[in-house]
Design a protein around this nucleic acid. Structure first.
Lengths: 366, 366
DNA sequence: CTGTTAGCGCCTTCAC
DNA sequence: GTGAAGGCGCTAACAG
């Protein structure tokens, strides 16, 4: 409401002195006192646009996520916030629609002066989007697999390794008829996880059975799991385990299993992915692959801060390795709890997700 | 990157003509063509700060939520987005910390030019915060109970009525020993819900038993529920029902019940509040009180838009009434499914949340 | 230590 | 229909 000019006039000093006094630049104690008093009386709040226009920076960063309803992004977001707070940045969250147009629109608008940098985690990354990102006037860090290496600071999970962990764990606990409920395979994570499951089946001799949900959501997961379990049962070969492409789909699988009278884990083992808060909230608690959401968020924030400090530095890529968090949903079928199983309410990973250094070396990460 | 001046120079016209051409003001077809071509080649994106500085508006709104991890806010947020999109506004989400200082800090910064209006849903609303809000240069809509009526556009749920609905439903399904797991009672919702439970007990003759979680979260709910159930069992009067102050606490109650060997709903009925996505994801599905999160979000958006159009209008208040969504967690204890119970996976309310017109009339709403 | 001045990039009267 | 000029609110040089 009040402008700096009004504050200056009220304090009886020049506008420049007022600015200096408020920003801690050299000014006499008396001036500082006068100006701060005037500012308080007028409830002066500096106009961020004008300041940004002059200084060229805003102190704000934005985090664009595909689905604010997915707890994975919440964890990432918290990690990003923690990491940038120390440097004095604030984080705005923005839900980028699932369509590319609205996404581009949004990125442009954010990057046109409201924020100093962007972290985005889209479900679908194509060349059009990347071309757009390259035009932005602020640096961008992409969380997720890029169609081609280089060009952007990038953080990603190794979800292919995660799928392999899940399958191996199920085999070790004695399951053999393992199905996979994937998310949409035209998304980056869906494609990678689907391929990884196929590869794991080939490698281990498991017969490949899968269903594809129309979305990475509970409702879509329920439908797909119902179909997968039903088809297997109808064929006289009921599954004894399901790997779900994320925890929400795993929750849908719980419901599909209940509908068919299957008890988890004795009749059916379930493994989720993401190790979101939901995994510990379900009953029985869900064994899940931790894809290191928080770690990815932290890395993304650090890459962005580094680029803000040094705009010319080469683009860098970080891969976060998965860890299996064993809970009750994969306990041994005979009812005996295997020694590796963690207590029901214990979440922390035993093997913390680690990062690989050199860009693009880990095999087929998301 | 590129400025309007550069575009103008490249097009061979004045900066004013370039501005007009790009904004659809009167300009010759030839000029328009020249300018748009130049803009495209230079990948020109107008600087939002400069434009905002000049025009006085940004086309952005912000939604400040207490906990981005709580699905209730996600639903509100989606409703807000849907409602303002039509008017051409974009919504930024910002997690306001639970402390008042960081909250004030954040609101100030947002309101200092980055957004045209604010919707906030804080867990604790005190006079200090309200005084701060009144100083902001942009309009604010508060979602939640205000310490005193008037002064702000305001939307709130009637969570007291919601608690009453829950208790009545439990009594109707034959439960008598009903406990309450509240959230922190120094928060607005915690206080109101706690008082409402006390009132419901007085009214119905139920013996009041309660525990207070340190937060509206799963982990805190588990601890409090464990204590509540344990104490009642130790006293030789095991509970047959629990009302939880929100769905996350209800989920914690599920786990506490499982630890004590109680089966839901036959040994213990559970009712949650908020009817968040989690309610349908739990097994058995959770009966929950829909406090109309989406409806509240829509109302908040409409109030804000109205004030943006007409800044001088009187502050208005909207109360959204609750509706009970019956699922499996309160099925009759003898195993028979009462006729009022909805199918396990059906979420929609039969009685849609409605809104009360006149400000501050409904009894003790949150 | 202080005041004057020149823009940051854009829009918008105002003359032409 | 077009160009020149002023100013949105602020900061950072520059003189004094």
């Amino acid at each position: 409401m009040a402008t700096l000019m009004e504050v200056a006039r009220r304090a009886g000093v020049s506008i420049a002195s007022a600015s200096r006094a408020l920003n801690g630049e050299s000014a006499s104690p008396r001036t500082v006192e006068l100006v701060t008093a005037a500012a308080r009386e007028l409830a002066y709040v500096p106009d961020a646009r004008a300041r940004g226009l002059k200084r060229g920076s805003t102190g704000q960063l934005a985090f664009g996520v595909a689905d604010v309803g997915n707890h994975v992004y919440v964890e990432m977001m918290r990690a990003v916030e923690d990491a940038v707070r120390a440097e004095g940045y604030r984080v705005l969250i923005s839900s980028v629609g699932s369509t590319v147009e609205t996404e581009v629109e949004l990125l442009r608008s954010l990057a046109s002066g409201y924020v100093d940098g962007l972290i985005i985690s889209p479900l679908r990354v194509d060349d059009e989007l990347l071309a757009e990102l390259a035009q932005l006037r602020v640096p961008v860090v992409v969380v997720g697999l890029l169609p081609q290496p280089g060009g952007f600071d990038n953080v990603r999970a190794n979800s292919a390794a995660g799928v392999a962990l899940a399958v191996e764990h199920l085999l070790e606990t004695g399951r053999r008829r393992i199905g996979f409920v994937n998310g949409p395979e035209d998304t980056t994570p869906g494609r990678v996880r689907g391929e990884a499951f196929g590869a794991a089946c080939d490698r281990t001799g498991v017969v490949e059975r899968r269903a594809v949900a129309s979305d990475f959501t509970f409702a879509a997961g329920l439908l797909a799991a119902r179909q997968l379990l039903g088809a297997a049962a109808a064929a006289g070969e009921p599954l004894d385990a399901v790997v779900a492409a994320n925890d929400l789909i795993a929750a849908g699988t719980y419901h599909a299993a209940a509908e068919q009278g299957l008890t988890i884990p004795s009749d059916l083992a379930v493994v989720g992915m993401d190790d979101s808060a939901l995994a510990a909230q379900l009953l029985p608690t869900l064994t899940s692959v931790d894809l290191g959401a928080a770690v990815r968020g932290r890395h993304a924030a650090e890459l962005l801060l580094a680029r803000l400090r040094e705009p010319g530095r080469p683009a860098q890529s970080v891969v976060v390795e998965p860890a299996l968090i064993v809970r009750s949903s994969t306990a041994a079928p005979d009812g005996a709890v295997p020694s590796v199983a963690a207590p029901a309410t214990t979440a922390p990973a035993t093997t913390a997700p680690s990062t690989a250094g050199p860009p693009y070396e880990a095999g087929d990460p998301t």
